[in-house]
């Protein structure tokens, strides 16, 4: 075993990363209204209360609509961008891609406030879940592109050339050869975008108007100590859902890499 002390450090680091997440189910199933130790006893009341809550159900519906629509939009746009940036050479490619990838480093609040200004002052439209969808596409797009770029970059171009030589058009080559090979990457990009949108708070906070989404609902409830146990239960469900979505995304990402016969260099981004 190489670097034994580094390995211990790495394990300690993983514990630090996961510590807060491990606390979540402890309090979600804890039979007490105060979030503190010692734990009182086991209960599933908070999950039952969560299921009865109408505002929460409304927020969940909104969040699911937003996440489905915006991740579909982001994934479609990302297919264009990833294909263009990995397969073609053209002027100003760096600048154009830089602009599209900018939200990865830009603080979310800038996106939130600038879109708010445009919607209210320039376009004069009412805030709704539609405006949140427009914002979430911009936020998720860079991550979807990052996932898809690996998928497109590992494609063997000679496969396409062979198809063209055998009389297929560019379009049919894309549909018959490229698309099936990058499909796992597309699914992975969609799931990543979905997870991002489901968890996104700032842009939804600025752009949702009076419509609740799950994160803005959670944020509004964190001020009330009596609401916290239900939020812990909700958090447990959300984390479980995120882990599930990401595991499926990772499965497809790996399958995509295996399909194109490339070496796995690891990870999203």
């Amino acid at each position: 075993m190489k670097f034994p002390s580094l390995k211990i450090y790495a394990l300690a680091y993983l514990i630090f990363l996961y510590a807060p997440i491990f606390l979540l189910p402890l309090f979600a199933f804890n039979d007490g209204t105060i979030i503190a130790f010692p734990l009182k006893g086991f209960t599933t009341d908070w999950f039952a209360k969560m299921a009865e809550n109408d505002t929460l159900r409304h927020a969940l519906t909104n969040s699911l609509i937003i996440a489905l629509t915006s991740s579909a939009g982001a994934t479609i746009l990302a297919v264009f961008a990833a294909r263009a940036s990995t397969r073609y050479k053209f002027r100003a490619k760096g600048g154009i891609m830089g602009l599209i990838m900018l939200p990865m480093v830009l603080p979310d609040i800038l996106m939130g406030m600038s879109l708010l200004l445009v919607m209210l002052e320039v376009l004069r439209v009412n805030l709704s879940i539609g405006t949140v969808i427009l914002g979430h596409v911009i936020i998720a797009l860079p991550y979807a592109i990052a996932v898809l770029q690996t998928a497109f970059a590992t494609l063997d171009q000679s496969l396409e050339e062979a198809a063209v030589d055998l009389g297929e058009t560019r379009m049919s080559t894309f549909r018959l050869i490229v698309l099936p090979l990058v499909m796992p990457g597309i699914i992975s990009a969609f799931l990543i975008s979905f997870t991002i949108s489901l968890d996104e708070f700032i842009v939804a906070f600025f752009l949702a108007g009076n419509q609740p989404t799950l994160p803005t609902y959670i944020f509004s409830q964190l001020r009330f100590p009596s609401a916290i146990p239900v939020i812990m239960a909700l958090g447990t469900c959300l984390v479980a859902a995120s882990i599930l979505l990401l595991s499926v995304a990772e499965f497809f990402r790996r399958r995509g890499i295996k399909r194109t016969g490339a070496k796995d260099t690891g990870g999203f981004l």
């Binding site: 996961y18 807060p20 606390l23 959670i218 995120s242 981004l269």
Partner: peptide, 24 residues
Amino acid sequence: ARWIFLITIPFWTSYLIRVFLWKV
């Protein structure tokens, strides 16, 4: 790949709730 996946998971899970848990 497995380690990177493990490291990125907490990053993708609800930011608000993770921050609140630090308060806890």
